[in-house]
């Protein structure tokens, strides 16, 4: 392949813009609203309307100088380049960036998943020459189960322990809303109780058209009132003093990491729920194949294995080692 027009720090050379830059930049293209990808303090931000709404909710109206919303599939032409955003299926508003310049097609996936999710626009496959992909779960040990089965395990546990609260550790943006939505899909229509950190973003999701059913703040409910109830809280609160207010809580965490039992054990999780907002190993391989990319760059995650796999397939592949993107076991996506 000719010299790509994208640098290895994700600078889009023809327009001098950066994708998900970890430091403030004059021009930034933001794939989705998670803190490690969307930071405040940029000059001009290009993102989907939902991502912009999320950024403004989290960081304030003036977290960037200007915002340019680009709806999915609309093409922006700029300095001889064509840029468009396409659903990544990771969280609400999450996007892959498709760029065309000088006859070359490059796709930067951001974080993505391919399983159906009522809280995120469904992943769209894009063919390209250079695929820049994440590899959060880029090891063959990660084969995510059907999330509906995980929800069934959760509901079985709720039924088995009627005097205990179930507190589910979830990242406040994306995972919380997805778990709530999966519970509704699984037939659970009782109120779900929220830690304070969840309330604003759940309200935003509802405003943006994602129904979540009855939600109540956990704060004012007396201990006994939460017996047999489901509470959603950030992972940090689950293991913290915060959950002492709950009646004999079952600690659950919803994350792709939870498939490794030793890992669940070492973080004291009693009910690990393998619910991930990233592609697993099989979907990573599927995506690499279906995009028909000849060159693959891996931004972050378990990059060794994916790079090795791609090279085995005869593709040019290299890791970018972008350490600014969280991917440790402590970070629950």
């Amino acid at each position: 392949m000719a010299q790509p027009f994208l640098d290895r720090d994700l600078r889009v050379r023809p327009i001098d813009a950066y994708i998900d830059p970890p430091v403030p930049r004059e021009r930034a293209i933001i794939t989705h609203g998670h803190g490690d990808h969307a930071r405040s303090g940029h000059g001009a931000v290009l993102a989907t309307p939902d991502t912009i709404a999320i950024m403004k909710t989290r960081y304030g109206e003036d977290c960037a100088r200007t915002f340019q919303p680009l709806p999915y599939g609309e093409v922006l032409e700029m300095d001889g380049m064509r840029i468009s955003l396409h659903p990544a299926g990771h969280i609400l508003g999450s996007a892959q960036v498709l760029m065309e310049f000088g006859g070359q097609r490059i796709v930067v996936t951001g974080d993505y998943k391919r399983l159906p999710d009522r809280t995120a626009q469904p992943f769209e496959l894009l063919e390209c020459d250079l695929l820049v992909t994440e590899a959060t779960f880029g090891l063959p040990v990660f084969q995510h189960p059907d999330p509906a089965l995980e929800i069934r395990r959760l509901l079985a546990s709720v039924a088995a322990y009627p005097s205990r609260a179930h507190v589910i550790g979830c990242y406040a943006l994306g995972k919380a809303q997805r778990v709530i939505s999966l519970l509704r899909e699984g037939g659970y229509d009782a109120p779900i109780y929220l830690h304070g950190a969840m309330i604003r973003l759940c309200a935003l999701y509802e405003e943006l058209g994602i129904p979540l059913g009855p939600l109540l703040p956990a704060l004012d409910v007396p201990k006994a009132g939460l017996e047999g109830r489901i509470v959603i809280a950030p992972p940090s609160a689950v293991k913290d003093r915060w959950s002492r207010r709950l009646p004999d809580p079952v600690l659950a965490v919803a994350s792709g990491w939870m498939s490794v039992k030793q890992r669940a054990r070492q973080s004291g999780v009693e009910l690990p729920l393998v619910i991930s907002d990233h592609v697993d190993w099989n979907e990573l391989r599927q995506t690499v194949a279906e995009t028909r990319a000849q060159t693959v760059w891996v931004t972050h995650g378990r990059e060794d294995a994916l790079v090795y796999y791609c090279q085995q397939q005869g593709l040019a592949a290299e890791p970018l080692n972008i350490t600014a993107y969280d991917d440790g076991p402590e970070d629950v996506e």
Binding site: P140, V141, Q143, S259, V260, K261, Y308, Y309
Partner: peptide, 22 residues
Amino acid sequence: DPHLFALSYDYVGDLGETIALI
């Protein structure tokens, strides 16, 4: 693939669990 297995085992840290997951 043995190399992918080795990387996985190194990551998971428990042979039995690596086999079950992979």
